[in-house]
Amino acid sequence: MKARSILALLACLAAPVAAQAQDAVPATVRIATEGAYAPYNFTKPDGSLDGFEIELGREVCARAKLKCEFIAQDWDGTVPGLQAKKFDAIMSGMNITEARLKVIDFSKPYSIDHSGFAVDAKGPLAKLPMNGASIPLANEAEAQKALDAIKPLLKGTTIGVQVSTVNAAFLDRYLKGTAEIREYKTTEQHDLDLAAGRIDAIFANDAPLRATAEKPDFAGSIVLAGPRFLGGILGRGAAIGLRKGDTALKARLDEGIASVIEDGTLKRLSTKWFKADMTPPQG
């Protein structure tokens, strides 16, 4: 008797689990974004979110016939928040990397950006060699040549980077021991410390760096310098971060992304926000 009632109770508990199988697409897809990474995503003075990813996300959701809403979430809490089901997806300039694939899944990539340094316009690092050269990290010989060219100038300097990013992983692998690396919670904080002269350089994605260098507060005092790196440890481009096992949602979003690539919408949005087509190679 007792055993049977326990079984019945267990069945009751299990039933809704089966009904809401992991694979169902949520009625409203909640998408987390940092809201502090212009032009990818940023918060307007009135508190609303805007930027490349906000506009793109709305477009992709419309194509995939999904109801979506954006939620602002501090960068360092995005992956834990996704795992805790605080939201269902991440669109926050997050690159596909092997390390992240161990814990979460990704849609197709929707943009790819170089990473590099920004420095004090009047400081010695403004003369970093190979300025503007695109260096694919997959080509090891070329990458080594570029690193060897910049290392002498970077020796003993302090470089700021946002915590838990591909850029932090890059510095950790290639410049540890050459320069002191300081990790910040937000890019805004490392921008301020670069302007204050506490650090000699920041390492970040090109689009946000250009946005920072163009801000009235920093115009003329901060410039991009040195080679621009791509691929390898820096990832295969920004994509929508998803929980492992949410395959139905992934399939719908992938369709949506394929659709905006096909009819040129992605190219239009990319050009609007980045002044360049940053559509990643498909395949």
């Binding site: 360092d76 795992q83 915590v163 932090a168 910040y184």
Partner: peptide
Amino acid sequence: STITLLDLTGIAQKLIAQSFRA
């Protein structure tokens, strides 16, 4: 750790950022 110093807590945050195992 809130002003970029890597003390015990600073390193802990760094480790979590890499492993997501808070």
